[in-house]
Structure formats: C-alpha cells, structure tokens
C-alpha cells in the first residue's frame, strides 16, 4: 500500500464514517471540510508517528503540512527520507 492509500484509508475509516460523509479527495481541504477536529489531529499525528516510525514536532503540525491528504503524504515522505 502506498502512503497515499494508507493515509486516505485511515482518514476515511477514522473520520469520514463518524462524520456521515461519503468520500474525500486527496486535494480536499481538510480544514475547510470540518472533517478533523482537534482530537482528530492528535489521533492522526499519533497514527502517523506509530505507522511510519517518525517523530512529529508540535511546530511541524502546520496547515502547510496537514492541509490536504496530499500535503500530509508529502510531509510524511520528507520525514521518512529525512
């Protein structure tokens, strides 16, 4: 499974069902969709850390890195390769 697939799947399973929404596109704005609240962010961060063996610093939890699924994937890949 690619990073994109894995992250999409997690977000769909964790947040989408809860929210009663059908689907989410890789470039949908997660913030504007109201899909993820503050608890969700922490869950997502914890998931990404555990799944990828990376450490995410508070200063990295920015809109730039977490705006869309694509930006999360990009961020995680940089962390893994960095």
């Amino acid at each position: 499974m690619t990073n994109l697939e894995s992250i999409s799947e997690y977000i769909t399973a964790t947040f989408l069902i809860d929210n009663g929404q059908d689907s989410i596109e890789p470039d949908d704005n997660l913030l504007l969709s109201g899909l993820i609240d503050s608890l969700g962010v922490m869950q997502l961060v914890a998931h990404l850390q555990a799944e990828n063996g990376i450490k995410i610093e508070p200063r990295e939890v920015t809109l730039k890195n977490f705006k869309t699924i694509n930006s999360i994937v990009g961020f995680v890949e940089t962390k893994i390769s960095g």
Binding site: L30, L31, G34, I36, D37, S38, G40, V41, V61, L63, F66
Partner: peptide, 10 residues
C-alpha cells in the same frame, strides 16, 4: 497564516 490550524475551532 499564523492562526490557521487544522480545524476552525483550533
């Protein structure tokens, strides 16, 4: 920028 976080509430 500066305030925008991952949710509107945050």
């Amino acid at each position: 920028d500066g305030f925008a976080a991952l949710s509107l509430d945050m």
